[in-house]
């Protein structure tokens, strides 16, 4: 398994965990069959993600990447959040075992899904801005 200390830290003490009341956007990716579901909640004020939280069903890496992704977008603009890559999440965690890379992809997609939901609630078509959300069925697992 060999997770980095940072992964274990975010697994044991996840940041921003829990449901959010009155969220402005909620995104959910993954499915129970694969063993990973990530749900992200965002609060948006003037195009800035002022608050973010998550709930995750999944392995240690799934929980740690969710936690790290929320840390990386909190207080940042929506644009910054949409530019968040799975690689950035991985690097911030000092790397992931190769079989766990898909967890970081899922975390990236979960953020995008939450932003997408936010736009929908605003009456804006999210697809041109956010792009397609790649869910579990098609996630690029090697």
């Amino acid at each position: 398994m060999a997770y980095s200390e940072k992964v274990m830290d975010h697994f044991a003490n996840p940041r921003n965990v829990g449901e959010m009341e009155n969220a402005d956007g909620i995104g959910e990716v993954g499915n129970p069959k694969c063993g990973d579901i990530m749900k992200m909640y965002i609060k948006v004020d003037d195009d800035v993600i002022t608050d973010v939280s998550f709930k995750t069903f999944g392995c240690g890496a799934a929980i740690a990447t969710s936690s790290m992704a929320t840390e990386l977008v909190k207080g940042h603009s929506i644009d910054d959040a949409l530019n968040l890559t799975n690689k950035a999440v991985m690097e911030a965690l000092d790397g992931l075992p190769p079989v766990k890379i898909h967890c970081s992809v899922l975390a990236e997609q979960a953020i995008k899904a939450a932003v997408s939901d936010y736009y929908k609630r605003q009456g804006i078509d999210p697809t041109p801005i956010v792009g397609e959300i790649h869910d579990c069925e098609e996630c690029p697992i090697e």
Partner: peptide
Amino acid sequence: GIEGESLLLSLDLKGVSASSGSAC
């Protein structure tokens, strides 16, 4: 409602070595 590997890791942090049949 929970996944086996996160269960294992949590148990390991408490000093218990176990195993799981989860995909992870």
